[in-house]
């Protein structure tokens, strides 16, 4: 190991296509669960806001799930969804993302200023329509903040899938460890970090483009909180 350099550029050069495929696979395994979680979390968050009693039990369930080690969940799932399948890895990742996104959505909806809610009601919005058309867009910066955390942590957690044969870039860590060959490990770390960075920047940019008002809203809310403290 002492003679082995940290990075062998030759290996990287001869494995470019392989690294690209692993990165794409990793992106799918990590980010599709976040999208699925978003589709579930928004209605669930709306429901928990409309019926506040639901929120504590729902939050409790997702927190418990969040505490379960990924490997343990894989072992439980393998008989049903198969070894080395995307599904087996993506189910726990979806649950982890939900544990972040449901509270983010609920917090965002709860932070909607009372004046906005009142004026929407006074103009003749029913409770559901008001939640979906007025409050949810006003909460979008909170949801995107949750999405950023969920996406980055999902990219990191997806590597564990390599233990059951489907972990995208995570495979590079096992490979390098088994062969005491550091180059794939370093390449894996750099690519995971790069994927996380690109995803995060994409989300920030998307918020700027789709919701130009949101950055300002968050600043204003923070100012208000600062003033009342």
């Amino acid at each position: 190991m002492t003679d082995e350099p940290l990075v062998r550029w030759g290996w990287i050069g001869s494995h470019l296509a392989y690294l690209r495929d692993l990165t794409l696979d990793h992106a799918v395994i990590a980010l599709v669960p976040v999208l699925i979680a978003l589709v579930i979390a928004v209605p669930l968050g709306l429901l928990c806001t409309r019926f506040p009693r639901l929120y504590q039990p729902v939050a409790l369930v997702f927190n418990v799930v969040y505490a379960l080690p990924g490997v343990a969940v894989f072992v439980v799932l393998i008989p049903y969804t198969g070894l080395a399948t995307r599904t087996t890895v993506m189910i726990p990742l979806t649950c982890y993302a939900l544990a972040v996104l449901v509270p983010a959505t609920v917090d965002g909806l709860r932070a909607v200023p009372e004046a906005l809610r009142q004026s929407a009601t006074a103009m003749g919005y029913g409770p559901w329509r008001r939640l979906a058309a007025v409050e949810l867009p006003a909460a979008v910066s909170y949801v995107v903040a949750g999405l950023r955390v969920a996406a980055v942590s999902s990219i990191s957690l997806a590597a564990v899938g390599a233990l059951i044969g489907r972990g995208g870039l995570g495979y590079l860590f096992i490979d390098g460890f088994q062969r005491t060959f550091p180059t794939p490990i370093v390449a894996g770390i750099v690519l995971v970090a790069a994927l996380a960075l690109v995803t995060d920047l994409a989300l920030v940019l998307a918020l700027r483009l789709l919701a130009p008002w949101a950055a300002h809203e968050r600043r204003a809310t923070r100012r208000q909180r600062g003033a009342t403290q």
Partner: peptide, 11 residues
């Protein structure tokens, strides 16, 4: 209906 903080929709 008009209120003090205007209550305009930010989005």
């Amino acid at each position: 209906y008009v209120i003090q903080q205007a209550g305009l929709f930010p989005q």
